[in-house]
Design a protein around this nucleic acid. Structure first.
Lengths: 226, 226
DNA sequence: TTGTAACTATGACATTTATCATGTTAAAAT
DNA sequence: ATTTTAACATGATAAATGTCATAGTTACAA
């Protein structure tokens, strides 16, 4: 009944370093939740006391500003862990985690993770590397925010969404974001985002199939993003 | 002859978790360098193969953009470690590290750090927490870049420089940055930065003593930064 | 000491992006 | 089916910021 063993999170995340016994421990301590689109897994300021494994769906890590805008810091997909940073730092969550598509997540209590961390060097190294990867991405995003125009950032983000989440059979992007959310990722006003999507559409860089987006000219988008 | 024991880095960084034997190992494997203002400790893309302890001076982690602007990601002061991320990720440096004030640094080879990481849980936890702290700061900076105006970010940065580095007897900020570097931190054009400093000066929020800066009205600056 | 380069400063102007207003379309609820 | 709401879209305008030009200042080297 060792259910965690075949889980995608176990295959993709730091948890891949766990041995058989540890996986059994894991399976016994986890709690599974279903989170519907729009709902929160945890909110900024909450004490989480563990990490969440994303089995299925898509989530966003974001922070609400005074003027009501929701800046998205990172999208999370299945196979990833959520809440590592605040757990390790021993702090309340710095960001809110919400579902963008219906999610299935497992909660693993902090005590388990710390135990693995202290007893399994490969696990702690993996965990460390995963945080380091996040740091690198965050730094690079920061630089892009300053050095690139909104247009460039939109092109870059569309390509990234395509790379990270893939496309449906009809070629539309698999992640379904509202224009507001997309604006929240690239760090601009919703109207600006919509306007630029229209421009991209007219230039045949993309095609707007209702709310869905098809990348038509990846090469040109890449060039634009530089 | 256990020289590392009294070092400020040993007192402030993750290295504080090391025991006596480990500190001796450390002292035997380290190499000390002097870096003059303006010189690089390592450049973006370089393989570092270890970390640098900052014994004295101030450094900047930055990335050069296509248009020649140097975006500063983080300032580093004595007591901190440099190059942790790329060492752990096993990657070439993502950012360049340069001295803003003359620096004294010690290089610790990767093999040593990995050894400590694998054998000293407190050290690995400290290291992890330090990277987590960087990640949180980076995410928050990212959000500030989008949600705050240049004016707010300048006010915020001045206060932070004051907090992190303190002031000289004549009340001027201890870190001596060029306007260009200051602009690189807040993510704006040098001219915009200069102009706003002039404005702040006229409003008596700060005082410009030549190139040096005195914070005159901290309260008002804090209010402005929000 | 003088010359040169780097830094600071400011004005004029262009560009980018946000904001406000308003309309349209699509989705969800009754 | 119809109402209601949320999401998308676009124009007009304002505000913020970048760019270019130019000049004064400071630091430092010859």
């Amino acid at each position: 009944m060792n259910k965690c063993d075949q889980c995608i999170v176990r295959q993709l995340s730091s948890l891949k370093a766990l041995n058989k016994d540890e996986v059994i421990k894991l399976a016994n301590s986890k709690t599974t939740y279903t989170i519907k689109k729009g709902e929160a897994i945890f909110e900024e300021g909450e004490v989480t006391n563990g990490v969440f494994c994303v089995k299925d769906g898509v989530g966003k890590l974001s922070k609400l500003s005074a003027n009501g805008k929701d800046q998205i810091v990172k999208l999370v997909k299945s196979g990833e862990l959520l809440g590592q940073r605040s757990m390790i730092s021993n702090e309340p969550a710095n960001l809110s985690a919400k579902a963008i598509a219906d999610m299935e997540v497992c909660f693993i209590p902090k005590t388990e993770i710390i135990h693995f961390f202290n007893n399994n060097n490969q696990f702690s190294l993996n965990l460390m590397q995963s945080v380091c990867e996040d740091l690198k991405e965050s730094d690079n995003d920061k630089i892009a925010l300053v050095q690139k125009t909104v247009k460039q950032r939109l092109a870059e983000t569309l390509l990234q969404l395509h790379d990270d989440f893939g496309e449906n059979p009809d070629k539309t992007l698999k992640v379904q974001l509202t224009r507001e959310e997309l604006a929240g990722i690239i760090g601009t006003a919703t109207e600006s985002c919509i306007r630029l999507l229209s421009d991209f559409n007219k230039l045949e860089l993309i095609e707007l199939a209702g709310k869905k987006i098809i990348l038509k000219n990846v090469k040109a988008l890449k060039k634009l993003a530089e």
